[in-house]
Design a binder for these strands. Sequence first.
DNA 1: GTTTAAATTAAACGATTGTTTAATTTTTGT
DNA 2: ACAAAAATTAAACAATCGTTTAATTTAAAC
Lengths: 205, 205
Amino acid sequence: MTEFNSKQIEIINITEKLFAEKGFDGTSIREIAKAAEINVAMVSYYFGSKEKLLEAIILYRVSAFGVMLENLQNEPISPIEKVKKYICFYIKRIYENKDIYQILHFEIVNQKRTSDFPFFSEIKRKNLQLLENIIAEGKNSAIFKPKCNTVLIPTLIIGTFSQFYNNKKFYQEMLNLNDEASFEHYILNDFIEEITNVILGMLIK
Amino acid sequence: MTEFNSKQIEIINITEKLFAEKGFDGTSIREIAKAAEINVAMVSYYFGSKEKLLEAIILYRVSAFGVMLENLQNEPISPIEKVKKYICFYIKRIYENKDIYQILHFEIVNQKRTSDFPFFSEIKRKNLQLLENIIAEGKNSAIFKPKCNTVLIPTLIIGTFSQFYNNKKFYQEMLNLNDEASFEHYILNDFIEEITNVILGMLIK
DNA sequence: GTTTAAATTAAACGATTGTTTAATTTTTGT
DNA sequence: ACAAAAATTAAACAATCGTTTAATTTAAAC
């Protein structure tokens, strides 16, 4: 579909970080130009406008989310293992793409730019469908409870993670995770384990 | 401490909604003045500046959070009932104050305004302490598991709620909650119940 | 090597931003 | 009723905003 050259991708990467940190309205094109070491006119030249740059960032990042775990469903492992893999993959993806998740969070809430994101909703729907299939398998195998609200599970994962990450300072104090490395280690190990236990607790009989 | 007259409170209420909808940087003083039917100069007159108006909004709202459930700990009910009450109260409070939570979420993440919110952190800490006391009581009574991560519980509650509410449209479609009333009903009943089950599942043996 | 297209630049554009001024109206205290 | 204080106003302020222009440099094509 739409393709970006290396210069555009560089601008996208730098701007993504700025938008995540300061917000779309809190970031000026001149700031972007300075950070990316380009002339202010280049944003309009490459993307048309600031708003279209935002759209390009979202498109560029989210389209990479497309293929995720479609083969997970057919792997020869138990539903429990599948759920574990799902959660692990999902949290890692959010963590690695926290900037774009931050931007999307704001843009979805924001009433200024009436941007709806059909392809992002589509991914969410697909994502949820995959999980529901796995859980249905677990129900059929009588491993999972017959009644459990699956819709809230992705919400719980991404919501808890966002809340945790955005209050980084607070939790670093609380959990004695003083440096960046130990905070990351906590997320990729303890946090994932914790969330996995919560969700398996919801599912398993 | 700082007190606001009725005119100031009116401006605070109207601006709170605008900031939550469009963000601080996405809302101009002229928009505020129009919505509040005042002259643009009145914001500076009453609050000093736009940024001080933001601080006033946060101070005004968050200071009302102070006293919450201090007596909950001493009520003659089981730890399980206390946890239930805690969750119910907490979710209702977030729901009723979603605008200021939205603003705070953005301001905490935002790297532009180096505002730290010591009194908000203090409330969070107090909030968490109360929950930990209740859970400790449950552990002593051998009702709750001896090992369970309590730190993540408020994070889970507020995170899941925020994620749910901010993707209102998506979940309204998903759960067939077409009108505002049924969406609110879902939050105040089904959602609270769902979250309560998740957390009690984490705690109870 | 010349021509054509693409990339980059500095400067300017009008519009909007937050804030201040100075004048006027309204309210308050006596 | 009058003086003082508070509230409100329209207008102007300089600064910054996103975007465009027109000129110049760089790269590509033949």
